[in-house]
Amino acid sequence: MSTAISTNTTVEWFYACNVIDVPPNGGVCVKYDDVQIALFRFARRDAWYATQNMCPHRQQMALSRGMTGTHDGEPKVACPFHKKTFSLEDGRCLSDETECSLTTYPVRVENEKVYIGIMQEA
């Protein structure tokens, strides 16, 4: 399945897991070849987000184990190592402006199955 976004980029949707595999209001780590993606489920607002699993601060594969939440309504995750928080909308670090941003991925749910979108250069 692929959807055209603009003339030269398409999104490749890959099947990550089932809805039931992800704890409500929590996260899991998804393996996509050699890439680790953190997938978050905000059950209270029925929203899904995905980012790189690696926290850029100490380069630890940990964000999927982080605590989710919101700040002024903006969804975020806190890294379990040093509690740096990142926006799940655009990946920017909320607690330290000099910190690198996270890569984010679109998420789609169909028939209780969760798909993560990977950008493909045409």
């Binding site: 209001n25 905000f42 209270r44 607002r45 982080g66 605590m67 989710t68 939440g69 919101t70 700040h71 309504g73 969804p75 975020k76 806190a78 509690k83 928080t85």
Partner: peptide, 9 residues
Amino acid sequence: GDGCEVCKP
């Protein structure tokens, strides 16, 4: 709201 890493624990 949804809570955060402060109030949840």
